[in-house]
Computed example of a mutant assay.
Amino acid sequence: MNDTILDWIQQWFLNNCDGTWELGEAIQINTTDNPGWEVEIDVSNTSLATLAIPQILNEKNKNDWYSVKIEDKTFSASGDAQKLQFLLGLFKETIEKIEGIEP
């Protein structure tokens, strides 16, 4: 089966629901005014909880950029208007790398 990133995120969310975590702001996807996307995912109950990654910014131009970091038990990523799937993919890759899962 060829799962999409949305299939993966939905399953990851379901796997992490514990009766409490999902009652907060576990996953937030917002638009920004530049225009772009912002993704914040609470990783407090995951293998990323103790991990901190300083902000990484990759900016080719005002229409081709992204930023990602893990801080205060939150995965935060933002990017231009065409980067939503890419940003969610970065989260998936980070989870799989930390947990030693082969994609």
Rank of each mutant, 00 (worst) to 15 (best):
V43G: 06
S44C: 09
N45M: 07
N45T: 08
N45W: 02
T46S: 14
T46P: 05
T46D: 06
S47T: 15
S47F: 05
L48H: 02
L48P: 04
L48I: 12
A49H: 04
A49P: 04
A52K: 13
I53A: 06
I53M: 15
I53H: 05
Q55W: 14
I56C: 12
L57P: 05
L57I: 14
L57M: 13
N58T: 08
N58R: 15
E59A: 09
E59H: 11
D64R: 11
D64Y: 03
W65A: 00
Y66C: 14
Y66M: 12
V68K: 07
V68Q: 12
V68R: 09
V68F: 07
K69D: 01
K69A: 03
I70E: 05
E71V: 05
E71T: 15
T74D: 00
F75C: 00
S76W: 09
A77P: 10
A77Y: 04
S78A: 10
S78Y: 01
G79H: 08
G79I: 02
G79F: 13
A81T: 07
A81E: 03
Q82R: 10
L84D: 02
L84W: 05
L84G: 06
Q85V: 05
F86A: 03
F86E: 02
G89P: 10
L90Y: 09
L90H: 05
F91Q: 00
F91R: 02
F91L: 13
K92R: 14
E93Q: 10
E93Y: 04
E93F: 09
T94K: 12
